Amino acid sequence: MQTLTRTITNPLIKDEVTFLKTSAETRGAYTLVEVKLAPGGGVPLHYHNSYRETFACVAGELSIQCQKDVVRLQSGQSAVAEANTLHRFFNQSPEPCRFLCRIEPGNPGFEQLLQINYGLARDGKTNAKGMPKGLLNLAYVLSLGETRLPGLLSVLGAFFKILARRAVKKGIAAQLQQQYVRF
């Protein structure tokens, strides 16, 4: 019997995510992932409207930016990005780091966002910053995890909602789900 791996990798942002607990497994209370992040890896500034993220460094050093403040977490330290707080995580040390990220409440869309976006990155279907190529793909992926981006992209929020609905109507969403979502 083949076992289903719950680890996904993204070659662009240089990380590996293992799903320890999904929203379904915690009855919606939380999603818990372990992330291994290479030096120089990380994600751009963003925020989520309906859930908070708690980052707990397990090994190495993890940098967290919330609004304009940057903290460098060592093993055993944690930081929280509340809902609607602009944040990012990144590794500015010369060594890999490992951390836990707890999303509360759990969010199945966030879990799907990671699986789809990492699959697109592995297949060369994202730009150099890891954003899906094609506006319909981008809009749908962002809508899954209720992810909002600052700057010009934030102004386009309503437009992205329309595009996400179009991705569903055109079958693009179903195709992405079928191709990349495994659990």
Rank of each mutant, 00 (worst) to 15 (best):
R148K: 07
T85H: 06
A81W: 01
T22R: 14
T7F: 01
Q178N: 10
T22A: 07
K36Q: 00
R165I: 06
S93L: 02
M131D: 04
K169H: 14
F183S: 12
A59S: 09
A158F: 13
Y118A: 12
E146R: 14
Y180L: 02
F90S: 00
T5V: 12
G60M: 10
L114G: 04
T147L: 10
P39E: 07
V168Y: 08
T7S: 15
A164R: 04
A158W: 13
T31L: 15
L163E: 03
Y30R: 09
L163I: 04
F160L: 15
T26D: 15
L20V: 15
G40R: 11
R72G: 09
P132Q: 10
K129N: 11
P96C: 01
Q77S: 10
Y180K: 11
F159N: 12
L113I: 04
A139Y: 03
A38I: 06
L153T: 06
I13F: 03
P108L: 10
E82H: 08
R165P: 05
V70N: 02
R166E: 05
V17T: 10
F160K: 02
A56C: 03
N107K: 11
P39F: 07
H48F: 00
C66N: 08
V141G: 01
A24K: 14
M131P: 01
L114I: 13
I162K: 02
L37H: 07
N107H: 14
L135Q: 04
R182I: 03
E104Y: 08
P11C: 08
A128T: 15
G76I: 04
P105D: 03
L113N: 09
A164T: 12
L153A: 05
L144G: 11
R88K: 11
S50C: 00
G41R: 03
G76S: 10
D69P: 00
T26E: 14
P11H: 13
V33L: 05
R166H: 05
T9D: 07
R52Y: 00
T22H: 09
P105A: 06
L142W: 12
G106A: 09
T18N: 15
L135F: 09
G106V: 04
F183G: 07
V17M: 03
N10L: 09
E104A: 10
V58Y: 01
D15K: 04
L20N: 12
A38Q: 12
L114Y: 00
P11N: 13
V80G: 00
S143K: 14
T26V: 14
L62F: 04
V17H: 05
M131G: 08
L62D: 00
T18M: 08
L156S: 12
F183T: 05
I162Y: 05
V17E: 01
G109C: 04
K129L: 02
I13H: 10
A167W: 09
I64S: 06
Q112N: 14
Q92S: 03
L135D: 00
Q175A: 09
